[in-house]
Design a protein around this nucleic acid. Structure first.
Lengths: 343, 343
DNA sequence: CTGTTAGCGCTTTCAC
DNA sequence: GTGAAAGCGCTAACAG
């Protein structure tokens, strides 16, 4: 089915004017007489005329489209970031083309190529867990296509990054667990090729060090999903590796760990205190409710889109920015041993 | 910053050919000589030429863009639907323009106008809770812009709808609760102006009737968020309205109810059995784990996009379709009183 | 004050 | 087998 939209030409014909006169009348050009303007604008409104953005794009060499690439939309954090991006895009006349990499490098390369071919004015990207080569992103830099990374950034690239202060978030979480009396804090981490996960690991380690606690490699395990959180916790328990706290890279990993702890008849927070990361809505409804490091996805999205607009608007290539947002530990039942203070 | 893409003109100049010859050579037109084709295609590949979709759109009067409007991206169910939409869109050369209504009619009208102005080839929509007038959607129908609703449909419009069998899902959930021995099943429902919520209500009521149980209006309460789930449960308890089960319109409402039940020292499922709707990942990690009616968002997205493509491809307006996907009750601990069977 | 013309990138008759 | 020209919708330099 093809839809017939009203064009400037229709209006010109109707009014016995030339298209250029109509074009100018519609944008209040000073040359045009009041009467012509009024007649034109009235008819345009009556016919519900809206300029064809495709024609505009061809002319202006700008699509007013930005490509957004995320690992998975169905992650609470990413969807809040998209909300933030949309809020400023919308306010500035931009629309979002959304694609997912599905955490796969091959798909990431493919969809990135796709949105570039679409002639988006810029790209906002959060990298897949798997990604370890950056040629596909470097190409955008080479072609001077504005590019901003958020959350999962491409560490090695000279591009603008927006992240939360992962080191600090992890540091605070670990310090809090130690303050609750925990002496053997385990860390469940994500792929090391993502700097956000490395930063969280570093923050964890620094907090141990500052507290004079030993770093025990066997307490640092790879687990970044619900299932892995469960499996690794079961393994630690079975292997009788002593631990009295878990700091997990995300909330679902923490939730998975809590499932295993319950099965093993270990009480949270008394036997094992748990802190997650992200502060998804799920954190509030777990039993016990889950302490977590809150990240404002919405603000991250806004900052990323604003940074992108700066680049789009600039004449020349701007120096890369590093925007770091604060992380905020939210303490709930899962890590609070002094239960008296819980409402 | 403006990016310079390679055009057909660049290639023509380089090769000393006309643009029309290059155009034909690139698409293997039979008129063109083998040598010309090879030279052209080789250079195109070398220069990483890709046709400008904006020029193509202007010419073909097709944008290969579809607008997707959802109430909130940050809802697990909607994000899985988007995944399904993307999978078929991608396979068919379409890209998604994503917008959110934020559950507000005014914003829905605005963003819908926006994507229509963008000249999308079609629109996929899930309506806000607030929406009670449909003029903005009717306009698309009038202008013969392909339109498919999913999940939250516009009941009164003669448009294609994709839904899950909400009546059946609710019926099965309620029947299951009754089979577990519950005699006073409460229902927490969403806005009645959405047919999906009405269908769930009707399924609930039918199951009561079929079991010979009375319908008690005071057990049917409006609650469709975590907070309302908590508040309404507290109210029922305080007002000493007896109930031994809750069937909630979504998982977070169920989770909110469970929070209140725990505070009131009521055990789930023994004092009150609970079933949710959607089967979000959160259902699995609650304590007790939450029984829920599973809906396949991914498949819904695929079906909706396929239906839209049928409309886009059709010469004339197609009759409205009503596509209904099955709902599947997933029983977990929150509603299973015979705990022996739980692993 | 308004019209003519050219051009954004591409396809597609129509000529030669 | 290849090129010239027109046109998709719109803007803007250039004429009157």
């Amino acid at each position: 089915m093809k839809t017939q939209h009203v064009t400037i030409k229709n209006i010109a014909a109707e009014l016995g004017l030339s298209v250029s006169t109509v074009s100018r009348a519609l944008k209040d050009h000073p040359d045009i007489s009041q009467t012509t303007k009024q007649r034109t604008q009235a008819l345009a409104k009556q016919l519900c005329y809206t300029p064809n953005p495709i024609a505009l794009s061809l002319k202006s060499q700008r699509s007013y489209l930005v490509g957004v690439i995320v690992p998975e939309i169905a992650h609470y954090f990413f969807s809040t970031v998209i909300g933030g991006i949309e809020s400023v895009a919308d306010a500035c006349g931009y629309s979002l083309i959304l694609v997912q990499s599905g955490e796969q490098l091959s798909r990431e390369e493919k969809v990135l190529g796709h949105i570039v071919n679409l002639r988006v004015d810029g790209v906002l990207a959060s990298v897949s867990k798997e990604t370890n080569s950056y040629g596909h992103f470097q190409r955008l830099l080479d072609e001077r296509i504005p590019l901003v990374f958020f959350d999962r950034v491409a560490d090695s690239l000279d591009a603008t990054h927006v992240t939360v202060d992962d080191f600090r978030g992890a540091y605070d979480a670990t310090k809090h667990l130690i303050a609750q009396g925990c002496r053997s804090v385990a860390h469940f981490y994500g792929p090391r090729n993502r700097s956000i996960f490395r930063s969280r690991h570093d923050g964890y380690r620094q907090a141990l060090e500052d507290a004079g606690l030993p770093f025990r490699p066997q307490l640092v395990v790879e687990a970044d999903t619900l299932e892995k959180g469960t499996a690794q916790t079961e393994r630690l328990v079975q292997q009788r590796i002593a631990f009295d706290a878990i700091f997990a890279v995300n909330d679902f990993t923490a939730a998975g760990a809590m499932l295993a702890l319950r099965k093993a008849k270990l009480s949270v927070p008394h036997d094992v205190a748990v802190v997650g990361y992200t502060d998804a809505p799920t954190a509030k409804v777990l039993t016990p409710s889950l302490s977590s490091v809150h990240q404002s996805g919405f603000e991250m999205g806004q900052q990323a889109m604003k940074a992108l607009l700066r680049q789009i608007g600039a004449e020349d290539r701007l120096p890369a920015e590093r925007i770091v947002l604060p992380a905020q530990l939210v303490v709930r039942e899962s890590s609070l041993r002094d239960l008296v203070t819980i409402k």
